[in-house]
Simulated assay, not measured.
Amino acid sequence: MTPEEEIDKAATPAEAPAVAEEIAADPYAELEADVVKWRELAVRTAADLDNFRKRSAREREDAIRYANQSLLEDLLPVIDNFEMGMQAAAQDKSSMIYVGMDMVRRQLNDFLGAQGVTEIPAEGKPFDPNIHEAVSHEVSADVADNTILRVHRRGFMLRDRLLRPATVVVAKNEKEG
């Protein structure tokens, strides 16, 4: 007779606790309860292990994708200074200095592109505080309010992460001025 049948067979509620004690004392019922408990624990542990493996793989991929971020951040001020040198050398575009610097600029841009670095579009675009940093506002009747007038320092993205925001001057409505 199964434990359930024994409970159903109990004629009065007073006899039910005695039957429950007898079931609790049944070693097979205890073993079955242990089996269920350990099976649930094994399933949960397997799920936790699977989640851990997925998270570790994702973190490893991110580490590989963004491993050069610190190096690239340190390289950006050097590129800024190089661009200022290019502007000075641009007065005589036929000079060998300008031609050589232009070749180096192209190599730097190719290198940045290969690393997943892209320039943030700014001039003439609407101001976005997530990728632009406003250093000043200027009154302008020529462009819409909150449009970027000038770029002081170029901004860059490393794949889908912000490497450095673009430093910009933003247009302001004349009426608010």
Results as ranks from 00 to 15, higher is better:
A134C: 07
N81T: 15
A114W: 00
V104F: 01
M101W: 04
D74S: 12
E123Q: 12
Q115L: 02
D102T: 06
P129V: 14
G124V: 08
F111L: 03
I120C: 04
F127T: 10
I120V: 10
E73T: 15
I120T: 02
I120P: 02
S70E: 11
F82C: 07
M96P: 05
V117K: 00
A122Y: 00
L72E: 11
G100E: 04
I120A: 02
S95Y: 10
A122G: 06
Q107L: 03
V99W: 01
M96K: 14
G100N: 13
Q87M: 12
D110Y: 03
G85Q: 15
Q87T: 13
D74K: 15
D102G: 05
A122L: 05
L75D: 01
E123I: 12
D128Q: 13
L112H: 01
K93M: 12
M101D: 05
D80A: 09
L75H: 05
D80R: 08
D74C: 03
I79G: 01
N130S: 13
Q69M: 12
D80K: 13
A122S: 11
N81P: 04
R105K: 05
S94Q: 13
G124I: 11
P126S: 13
D74A: 11
N109Y: 00
D110K: 08
L72H: 12
A89D: 02
G116W: 00
K125L: 14
V117T: 01
P77N: 11
F127N: 08
L76Q: 14
V104Y: 00
G85H: 09
V117P: 01
D74F: 06
A89C: 04
V99Y: 01
R106D: 03
S70Y: 07
I131Q: 12
V78M: 06
S70V: 14
I131S: 07
N130W: 06
M84V: 13
E133Q: 10
D92N: 15
L112E: 05
G85I: 14
L71S: 09
I97Q: 13
G113M: 03
A89H: 03
E133N: 07
V99R: 09
Y98T: 12
S70K: 12
D110I: 02
I120W: 04
E119Y: 00
V99E: 02
A114I: 02
P121N: 08
R106H: 01
D128E: 15
D110T: 10
A88G: 07
K125D: 11
P77C: 10
M86D: 04
N81L: 15
T118P: 02
I131V: 11
F111Y: 00
Q87C: 07
